[in-house]
Design a protein around this nucleic acid. Structure first.
Length: 432
DNA sequence: CCTGGAGTTGTCCTA
DNA sequence: TTAGGACAACTCCAG
Protein backbone atom coordinates (compact mmCIF):
# COMPACT_ATOMS: atom_id res chain seq x y z
CA UNK A 1 0.00 0.00 0.00
CA UNK A 2 1.21 3.48 -0.85
CA UNK A 3 2.18 5.68 1.98
CA UNK A 4 -0.25 8.55 2.29
CA UNK A 5 1.45 11.84 1.53
CA UNK A 6 -0.06 13.74 4.47
CA UNK A 7 2.11 13.91 7.59
CA UNK A 8 0.17 12.92 10.71
CA UNK A 9 0.56 12.57 14.45
CA UNK A 10 -0.84 9.45 16.08
CA UNK A 11 -2.82 9.36 19.30
CA UNK A 12 -2.71 5.88 20.77
CA UNK A 13 -5.74 5.03 22.94
CA UNK A 14 -5.08 2.46 25.65
CA UNK A 15 -6.94 2.82 28.92
CA UNK A 16 -8.33 6.27 28.24
CA UNK A 17 -11.24 5.42 25.95
CA UNK A 18 -12.82 8.84 25.69
CA UNK A 19 -12.54 11.97 23.60
CA UNK A 20 -13.31 14.45 26.37
CA UNK A 21 -10.69 15.71 28.83
CA UNK A 22 -8.01 13.37 27.59
CA UNK A 23 -4.58 14.85 28.35
CA UNK A 24 -2.60 13.13 25.60
CA UNK A 25 -5.28 13.55 22.97
CA UNK A 26 -5.64 17.25 23.73
CA UNK A 27 -1.92 17.76 23.30
CA UNK A 28 -1.92 15.83 20.04
CA UNK A 29 -4.72 18.02 18.75
CA UNK A 30 -2.62 21.10 19.50
CA UNK A 31 0.34 19.81 17.53
CA UNK A 32 -0.75 21.52 14.33
CA UNK A 33 -0.77 18.26 12.39
CA UNK A 34 -3.80 16.08 11.71
CA UNK A 35 -4.37 13.48 14.43
CA UNK A 36 -4.76 9.84 13.52
CA UNK A 37 -6.59 8.06 16.39
CA UNK A 38 -5.34 4.52 16.99
CA UNK A 39 -6.30 1.54 19.12
CA UNK A 40 -4.44 -1.76 19.18
CA UNK A 41 -5.96 -5.02 20.39
CA UNK A 42 -2.75 -6.28 21.96
CA UNK A 43 -2.38 -10.02 21.28
CA UNK A 44 -0.08 -10.45 24.25
CA UNK A 45 -3.03 -9.51 26.44
CA UNK A 46 -6.04 -10.79 24.49
CA UNK A 47 -4.53 -14.22 23.81
CA UNK A 48 -4.74 -14.87 27.55
CA UNK A 49 -8.47 -14.06 27.66
CA UNK A 50 -11.61 -15.94 26.71
CA UNK A 51 -13.02 -14.99 23.31
CA UNK A 52 -16.17 -13.69 24.99
CA UNK A 53 -14.46 -11.82 27.81
CA UNK A 54 -16.92 -9.07 28.75
CA UNK A 55 -14.11 -6.55 29.09
CA UNK A 56 -13.31 -6.98 25.40
CA UNK A 57 -16.96 -6.27 24.58
CA UNK A 58 -16.84 -3.15 26.73
CA UNK A 59 -13.63 -1.93 25.12
CA UNK A 60 -15.14 -2.56 21.71
CA UNK A 61 -18.33 -0.69 22.52
CA UNK A 62 -16.35 2.23 23.91
CA UNK A 63 -14.28 2.32 20.74
CA UNK A 64 -17.43 2.22 18.61
CA UNK A 65 -18.71 5.25 20.50
CA UNK A 66 -15.48 7.11 19.92
CA UNK A 67 -15.58 6.13 16.26
CA UNK A 68 -19.11 7.41 15.89
CA UNK A 69 -18.11 10.79 17.27
CA UNK A 70 -15.02 10.86 15.05
CA UNK A 71 -17.12 10.17 11.97
CA UNK A 72 -18.83 13.51 12.49
CA UNK A 73 -15.45 15.21 12.14
CA UNK A 74 -14.66 13.36 8.91
CA UNK A 75 -12.23 11.07 10.67
CA UNK A 76 -12.39 7.55 12.08
CA UNK A 77 -10.59 5.28 14.47
CA UNK A 78 -7.84 3.03 13.18
CA UNK A 79 -8.19 -0.34 14.85
CA UNK A 80 -5.22 -2.69 14.69
CA UNK A 81 -4.58 -6.14 16.05
CA UNK A 82 -1.30 -7.82 16.92
CA UNK A 83 1.56 -6.96 19.20
CA UNK A 84 2.06 -3.23 19.75
CA UNK A 85 5.44 -3.36 18.05
CA UNK A 86 4.17 -5.17 14.94
CA UNK A 87 1.28 -2.70 14.77
CA UNK A 88 3.64 0.26 14.83
CA UNK A 89 5.84 -1.31 12.19
CA UNK A 90 2.82 -1.58 9.92
CA UNK A 91 1.49 1.84 10.88
CA UNK A 92 4.72 3.64 10.08
CA UNK A 93 4.86 1.90 6.72
CA UNK A 94 1.35 3.09 5.84
CA UNK A 95 1.42 6.66 7.16
CA UNK A 96 3.86 9.51 7.42
CA UNK A 97 3.95 9.50 11.19
CA UNK A 98 5.69 12.52 12.67
CA UNK A 99 4.86 12.07 16.33
CA UNK A 100 3.14 9.56 18.61
CA UNK A 101 1.14 10.64 21.68
CA UNK A 102 -0.18 8.51 24.50
CA UNK A 103 -1.05 8.66 28.19
CA UNK A 104 1.18 7.05 30.77
CA UNK A 105 0.39 3.65 32.25
CA UNK A 106 2.17 2.44 35.39
CA UNK A 107 1.82 -1.35 35.31
CA UNK A 108 5.06 -3.29 34.85
CA UNK A 109 4.00 -4.76 31.49
CA UNK A 110 2.88 -1.37 30.20
CA UNK A 111 6.07 0.36 31.29
CA UNK A 112 8.15 -2.22 29.44
CA UNK A 113 5.89 -2.08 26.36
CA UNK A 114 5.98 1.71 26.17
CA UNK A 115 9.71 1.71 26.61
CA UNK A 116 10.13 -0.62 23.64
CA UNK A 117 7.72 1.33 21.47
CA UNK A 118 9.48 4.58 22.27
CA UNK A 119 12.84 3.02 21.46
CA UNK A 120 11.54 1.76 18.11
CA UNK A 121 9.87 5.05 17.13
CA UNK A 122 12.65 7.40 18.16
CA UNK A 123 15.00 5.16 16.20
CA UNK A 124 12.93 6.03 13.14
CA UNK A 125 13.06 9.73 13.93
CA UNK A 126 9.50 9.83 15.28
CA UNK A 127 9.03 11.83 18.47
CA UNK A 128 7.12 10.26 21.33
CA UNK A 129 5.15 12.27 23.90
CA UNK A 130 3.40 10.87 26.94
CA UNK A 131 1.19 12.41 29.60
CA UNK A 132 -0.28 11.94 33.03
CA UNK A 133 -3.97 11.29 32.55
CA UNK A 134 -5.40 8.41 34.56
CA UNK A 135 -4.54 9.83 38.00
CA UNK A 136 -4.31 13.16 39.75
CA UNK A 137 -0.92 12.28 41.22
CA UNK A 138 1.53 9.74 39.80
CA UNK A 139 4.98 8.33 40.41
CA UNK A 140 6.82 10.81 42.66
CA UNK A 141 4.12 13.49 42.83
CA UNK A 142 3.21 12.51 46.41
CA UNK A 143 6.21 11.40 48.41
CA UNK A 144 7.53 11.85 51.95
CA UNK A 145 9.72 14.78 52.89
CA UNK A 146 12.73 12.49 52.72
CA UNK A 147 11.97 11.74 49.07
CA UNK A 148 10.86 8.13 49.47
CA UNK A 149 7.37 6.77 48.65
CA UNK A 150 4.64 6.37 51.23
CA UNK A 151 3.67 2.87 52.27
CA UNK A 152 0.96 3.83 54.77
CA UNK A 153 -2.33 5.09 53.47
CA UNK A 154 -3.28 7.79 55.97
CA UNK A 155 -0.13 9.92 55.71
CA UNK A 156 -0.25 9.42 51.94
CA UNK A 157 -3.83 10.63 51.87
CA UNK A 158 -2.98 13.67 53.99
CA UNK A 159 -0.19 14.67 51.65
CA UNK A 160 -2.36 13.91 48.60
CA UNK A 161 -5.13 16.18 49.87
CA UNK A 162 -2.72 18.92 50.85
CA UNK A 163 -1.34 18.92 47.30
CA UNK A 164 -4.73 18.56 45.68
CA UNK A 165 -6.24 21.48 47.56
CA UNK A 166 -3.28 23.78 46.98
CA UNK A 167 -3.08 23.14 43.24
CA UNK A 168 -4.92 25.32 40.76
CA UNK A 169 -8.30 24.01 39.69
CA UNK A 170 -8.00 21.80 36.64
CA UNK A 171 -9.39 23.26 33.49
CA UNK A 172 -11.33 20.86 31.37
CA UNK A 173 -10.46 21.47 27.76
CA UNK A 174 -12.78 21.48 24.79
CA UNK A 175 -12.08 19.14 21.96
CA UNK A 176 -10.67 20.67 18.78
CA UNK A 177 -12.57 18.61 16.27
CA UNK A 178 -11.03 20.13 13.16
CA UNK A 179 -7.67 18.64 13.91
CA UNK A 180 -8.42 14.98 13.23
CA UNK A 181 -6.95 13.24 10.23
CA UNK A 182 -9.41 13.01 7.38
CA UNK A 183 -9.92 9.40 6.46
CA UNK A 184 -12.50 6.70 6.53
CA UNK A 185 -11.41 3.41 8.03
CA UNK A 186 -14.30 1.02 8.51
CA UNK A 187 -14.50 -0.35 12.05
CA UNK A 188 -14.25 -4.14 11.86
CA UNK A 189 -16.92 -5.92 13.89
CA UNK A 190 -16.23 -7.88 17.04
CA UNK A 191 -16.48 -11.32 15.42
CA UNK A 192 -14.16 -10.30 12.62
CA UNK A 193 -11.58 -9.46 15.26
CA UNK A 194 -11.92 -12.97 16.64
CA UNK A 195 -14.01 -12.18 19.71
CA UNK A 196 -17.58 -12.95 20.72
CA UNK A 197 -19.99 -10.70 22.54
CA UNK A 198 -20.40 -11.49 26.21
CA UNK A 199 -23.71 -11.66 28.01
CA UNK A 200 -22.11 -9.83 30.93
CA UNK A 201 -22.30 -6.06 30.64
CA UNK A 202 -20.61 -3.05 32.16
CA UNK A 203 -23.38 -0.83 33.50
CA UNK A 204 -23.26 2.92 33.52
CA UNK A 205 -21.99 4.61 36.65
CA UNK A 206 -24.44 6.19 39.04
CA UNK A 207 -23.67 9.14 41.31
CA UNK A 208 -27.19 9.42 42.68
CA UNK A 209 -26.15 7.08 45.51
CA UNK A 210 -23.50 9.49 46.81
CA UNK A 211 -25.68 11.31 49.38
CA UNK A 212 -26.26 8.03 51.24
CA UNK A 213 -22.94 6.40 50.31
CA UNK A 214 -21.39 6.81 53.74
CA UNK A 215 -24.23 5.05 55.61
CA UNK A 216 -25.06 2.34 53.12
CA UNK A 217 -21.83 1.51 51.32
CA UNK A 218 -21.21 -1.55 53.49
CA UNK A 219 -24.63 -3.06 52.91
CA UNK A 220 -24.37 -5.20 49.78
CA UNK A 221 -28.14 -5.62 49.45
CA UNK A 222 -28.60 -1.86 49.15
CA UNK A 223 -26.54 -1.85 45.97
CA UNK A 224 -25.61 1.72 46.80
CA UNK A 225 -22.22 1.88 45.13
CA UNK A 226 -21.44 3.98 42.09
CA UNK A 227 -20.31 1.25 39.65
CA UNK A 228 -17.64 3.71 38.62
CA UNK A 229 -14.70 1.30 38.75
CA UNK A 230 -14.78 -0.25 35.24
CA UNK A 231 -15.12 3.23 33.81
CA UNK A 232 -12.04 4.35 35.68
CA UNK A 233 -10.26 1.20 34.58
CA UNK A 234 -10.81 1.83 30.89
CA UNK A 235 -10.87 5.60 31.06
CA UNK A 236 -14.39 6.13 29.80
CA UNK A 237 -14.52 8.80 32.51
CA UNK A 238 -11.93 11.40 33.49
CA UNK A 239 -10.67 11.32 37.08
CA UNK A 240 -10.23 15.10 36.94
CA UNK A 241 -13.85 15.66 36.01
CA UNK A 242 -15.02 13.35 38.78
CA UNK A 243 -13.01 15.14 41.45
CA UNK A 244 -14.17 18.50 40.12
CA UNK A 245 -17.72 17.27 40.36
CA UNK A 246 -17.27 16.02 43.93
CA UNK A 247 -15.74 19.25 45.19
CA UNK A 248 -15.47 19.05 48.96
CA UNK A 249 -18.48 16.82 49.33
CA UNK A 250 -18.52 13.07 49.74
CA UNK A 251 -15.22 12.79 51.54
CA UNK A 252 -15.64 9.06 52.20
CA UNK A 253 -16.15 8.37 48.54
CA UNK A 254 -13.21 10.55 47.58
CA UNK A 255 -11.05 8.54 49.98
CA UNK A 256 -11.72 5.49 47.83
CA UNK A 257 -10.38 7.35 44.81
CA UNK A 258 -7.28 8.21 46.84
CA UNK A 259 -6.87 4.51 47.71
CA UNK A 260 -6.81 3.86 43.98
CA UNK A 261 -3.90 6.26 43.54
CA UNK A 262 -2.20 4.95 46.68
CA UNK A 263 -2.07 1.42 45.30
CA UNK A 264 -1.03 2.67 41.87
CA UNK A 265 1.99 4.42 43.32
CA UNK A 266 2.76 1.37 45.48
CA UNK A 267 2.81 -0.80 42.35
CA UNK A 268 4.92 1.77 40.52
CA UNK A 269 7.53 1.86 43.28
CA UNK A 270 7.32 -1.81 44.29
CA UNK A 271 6.51 -3.73 41.06
CA UNK A 272 7.79 -6.99 42.54
CA UNK A 273 4.75 -7.08 44.87
CA UNK A 274 2.78 -8.47 41.91
CA UNK A 275 4.24 -11.85 42.78
CA UNK A 276 5.92 -11.42 46.16
CA UNK A 277 4.67 -10.51 49.61
CA UNK A 278 5.17 -6.83 50.34
CA UNK A 279 6.43 -7.92 53.75
CA UNK A 280 8.87 -10.78 53.38
CA UNK A 281 8.28 -11.55 57.04
CA UNK A 282 5.26 -13.54 55.88
CA UNK A 283 7.10 -15.58 53.25
CA UNK A 284 7.18 -18.58 55.56
CA UNK A 285 3.42 -19.14 55.68
CA UNK A 286 2.62 -22.73 54.68
CA UNK A 287 -0.42 -22.35 52.45
CA UNK A 288 -2.51 -25.49 52.27
CA UNK A 289 -3.60 -24.79 48.66
CA UNK A 290 -6.23 -27.51 48.49
CA UNK A 291 -7.49 -27.48 44.90
CA UNK A 292 -10.88 -28.95 45.68
CA UNK A 293 -11.54 -26.29 48.31
CA UNK A 294 -10.31 -23.62 45.92
CA UNK A 295 -12.79 -24.64 43.23
CA UNK A 296 -15.60 -24.68 45.79
CA UNK A 297 -14.63 -21.13 46.73
CA UNK A 298 -14.58 -20.11 43.06
CA UNK A 299 -18.01 -21.58 42.39
CA UNK A 300 -19.59 -20.21 45.55
CA UNK A 301 -20.15 -23.65 47.09
CA UNK A 302 -18.38 -23.32 50.44
CA UNK A 303 -21.58 -23.56 52.47
CA UNK A 304 -20.92 -20.10 53.93
CA UNK A 305 -23.66 -17.94 52.39
CA UNK A 306 -21.81 -14.69 53.03
CA UNK A 307 -18.89 -16.06 51.00
CA UNK A 308 -20.86 -17.90 48.32
CA UNK A 309 -23.23 -15.02 47.54
CA UNK A 310 -20.29 -12.76 46.78
CA UNK A 311 -18.62 -15.30 44.54
CA UNK A 312 -21.86 -15.93 42.69
CA UNK A 313 -22.43 -12.24 42.11
CA UNK A 314 -18.92 -12.13 40.66
CA UNK A 315 -19.43 -15.18 38.43
CA UNK A 316 -22.78 -14.01 37.13
CA UNK A 317 -22.16 -10.29 36.71
CA UNK A 318 -18.43 -9.52 36.80
CA UNK A 319 -19.05 -7.29 39.83
CA UNK A 320 -18.67 -7.93 43.54
CA UNK A 321 -19.64 -5.57 46.30
CA UNK A 322 -16.61 -4.25 48.17
CA UNK A 323 -17.68 -5.64 51.55
CA UNK A 324 -18.04 -9.06 49.91
CA UNK A 325 -14.58 -8.80 48.38
CA UNK A 326 -13.11 -8.44 51.86
CA UNK A 327 -15.10 -11.36 53.23
CA UNK A 328 -14.40 -13.75 50.35
CA UNK A 329 -10.71 -12.82 50.30
CA UNK A 330 -10.32 -13.24 54.04
CA UNK A 331 -12.08 -16.60 53.87
CA UNK A 332 -9.77 -17.89 51.14
CA UNK A 333 -6.56 -16.80 52.86
CA UNK A 334 -7.45 -17.42 56.48
CA UNK A 335 -10.11 -20.14 56.61
CA UNK A 336 -8.86 -22.19 53.69
CA UNK A 337 -5.21 -21.12 53.92
CA UNK A 338 -4.95 -20.74 50.16
CA UNK A 339 -2.26 -18.47 48.75
CA UNK A 340 -3.60 -14.96 48.07
CA UNK A 341 -2.13 -15.19 44.56
CA UNK A 342 -4.70 -17.86 43.65
CA UNK A 343 -7.54 -15.61 44.69
CA UNK A 344 -5.93 -12.63 43.02
CA UNK A 345 -5.72 -14.53 39.74
CA UNK A 346 -9.38 -15.54 39.94
CA UNK A 347 -10.53 -11.98 40.58
CA UNK A 348 -8.30 -10.83 37.71
CA UNK A 349 -10.09 -13.21 35.39
CA UNK A 350 -13.61 -12.28 36.48
CA UNK A 351 -13.77 -8.66 37.61
CA UNK A 352 -14.97 -6.11 35.06
CA UNK A 353 -13.08 -3.47 37.01
CA UNK A 354 -9.95 -5.56 37.37
CA UNK A 355 -7.07 -3.24 38.11
CA UNK A 356 -3.69 -4.84 38.79
CA UNK A 357 -2.59 -2.31 41.42
CA UNK A 358 -5.81 -2.41 43.46
CA UNK A 359 -6.18 -6.16 43.14
CA UNK A 360 -2.64 -6.86 44.34
CA UNK A 361 -2.80 -4.23 47.06
CA UNK A 362 -6.12 -5.37 48.46
CA UNK A 363 -5.39 -9.10 48.27
CA UNK A 364 -2.15 -8.56 50.13
CA UNK A 365 -4.11 -6.48 52.61
CA UNK A 366 -6.59 -9.32 53.14
CA UNK A 367 -3.81 -11.88 53.47
CA UNK A 368 -2.00 -9.66 55.96
CA UNK A 369 1.16 -9.66 53.82
CA UNK A 370 0.77 -6.19 52.30
CA UNK A 371 1.82 -2.68 53.14
CA UNK A 372 -0.50 -1.18 55.73
CA UNK A 373 -2.23 -4.55 55.91
CA UNK A 374 -4.81 -5.92 58.30
CA UNK A 375 -3.03 -7.68 61.20
CA UNK A 376 -2.96 -11.40 60.54
CA UNK A 377 -5.04 -12.21 63.61
CA UNK A 378 -7.90 -10.17 62.19
CA UNK A 379 -9.99 -12.97 60.77
CA UNK A 380 -13.42 -12.15 59.39
CA UNK A 381 -16.19 -14.31 60.77
CA UNK A 382 -18.62 -14.85 57.85
CA UNK A 383 -21.55 -15.35 60.24
CA UNK A 384 -20.76 -12.18 62.15
CA UNK A 385 -20.43 -10.29 58.87
CA UNK A 386 -23.83 -11.58 57.80
CA UNK A 387 -25.42 -10.38 61.03
CA UNK A 388 -23.83 -6.98 60.62
CA UNK A 389 -24.20 -6.33 56.93
CA UNK A 390 -26.95 -8.59 55.56
CA UNK A 391 -29.13 -9.28 58.55
CA UNK A 392 -32.29 -9.93 56.53
CA UNK A 393 -30.49 -12.30 54.15
CA UNK A 394 -31.52 -10.06 51.28
CA UNK A 395 -28.23 -10.14 49.41
CA UNK A 396 -27.70 -13.81 50.18
CA UNK A 397 -31.10 -14.82 48.84
CA UNK A 398 -30.63 -12.73 45.76
CA UNK A 399 -27.51 -14.63 44.69
CA UNK A 400 -28.18 -18.06 46.24
CA UNK A 401 -31.70 -19.04 45.18
CA UNK A 402 -31.38 -22.47 46.83
CA UNK A 403 -30.34 -20.96 50.17
CA UNK A 404 -32.31 -22.58 52.97
CA UNK A 405 -33.12 -25.72 50.97
CA UNK A 406 -31.30 -29.04 51.18
CA UNK A 407 -29.63 -28.26 47.84
CA UNK A 408 -27.39 -25.73 49.55
CA UNK A 409 -24.18 -27.38 50.82
CA UNK A 410 -23.05 -27.65 54.43
CA UNK A 411 -20.04 -25.53 55.43
CA UNK A 412 -16.82 -27.09 54.11
CA UNK A 413 -15.06 -26.12 57.30
CA UNK A 414 -16.03 -25.08 60.79
CA UNK A 415 -15.32 -21.45 61.60
CA UNK A 416 -13.78 -21.75 65.06
CA UNK A 417 -11.53 -24.60 63.91
CA UNK A 418 -10.41 -22.68 60.82
CA UNK A 419 -9.79 -19.54 62.85
CA UNK A 420 -7.57 -21.34 65.32
CA UNK A 421 -5.71 -23.12 62.55
CA UNK A 422 -5.07 -19.84 60.69
CA UNK A 423 -3.68 -18.20 63.81
CA UNK A 424 -1.33 -21.14 64.34
CA UNK A 425 -0.15 -21.37 60.73
CA UNK A 426 0.45 -17.64 60.48
CA UNK A 427 2.24 -17.54 63.81
CA UNK A 428 4.47 -20.38 62.72
CA UNK A 429 5.03 -18.74 59.33
CA UNK A 430 6.45 -15.56 60.82
CA UNK A 431 8.72 -17.26 63.38
CA UNK A 432 12.34 -16.38 62.88
C1' DC B 1 18.91 10.76 65.88
C1' DC B 2 15.32 10.15 68.93
C1' DT B 3 10.58 9.87 70.32
C1' DG B 4 5.91 9.16 70.55
C1' DG B 5 1.68 8.49 68.32
C1' DA B 6 -0.82 6.05 65.03
C1' DG B 7 -2.15 2.51 61.91
C1' DT B 8 -9.51 1.30 56.44
C1' DT B 9 -12.80 -2.07 56.72
C1' DG B 10 -12.44 -7.67 63.34
C1' DT B 11 -13.55 -11.04 66.59
C1' DC B 12 -13.74 -13.26 70.90
C1' DC B 13 -13.84 -13.58 75.73
C1' DT B 14 -14.61 -11.80 80.12
C1' DA B 15 -16.48 -9.09 83.57
C1' DT C 1 -26.54 -6.35 77.26
C1' DT C 2 -22.36 -4.11 76.59
C1' DA C 3 -17.73 -2.29 77.12
C1' DG C 4 -12.95 -3.19 77.09
C1' DG C 5 -8.92 -5.67 76.49
C1' DA C 6 -6.34 -9.32 73.96
C1' DC C 7 -4.77 -10.83 69.76
C1' DA C 8 1.46 -9.31 69.16
C1' DA C 9 4.30 -6.40 69.16
C1' DC C 10 5.99 -3.67 64.59
C1' DT C 11 6.77 -0.21 61.46
C1' DC C 12 6.00 4.05 59.67
C1' DC C 13 6.10 8.88 59.82
C1' DA C 14 6.29 13.64 61.48
C1' DG C 15 8.20 16.71 64.58
Amino acid sequence: MDKTSVPVVVFWFRRDLRLHDNAGLNSALKSGLPVLPLFIFDKTITDELEKDDPRISFIYDSLAKINKALRKTGSSLLLMQGTPISSFVELTSRYQVKRVYFNRDYEPYAIQRDHEIKYYLTGKGIDVYNYKDQVIFEQNDVIKNDGTPYTIYTPYKNKWLQKFISQKPVLIQDLDEDQFFNHNEPLPDLNFLGFRRSGIKVVNYNFSVLPTYEETRNLPAEDSTTYLSPHLRFGTVSIRQILNYLGNQYEIFRNELIWREFFMQILFHFPWTVIRNFRSKYDGIKWRNNEDEFSKWCEGETGYPMVDSGMRQLNLTGYMHNRMRMITASFLCKHLLIDWRWGEAYFAKKLLDYELSSNIGNWQWAAGTGCDAAPYFRIFNPLEQQRKYDKNYQYIKKWIPEFGTNKYPDPIIQHSFARKRALEVYKKGIEK
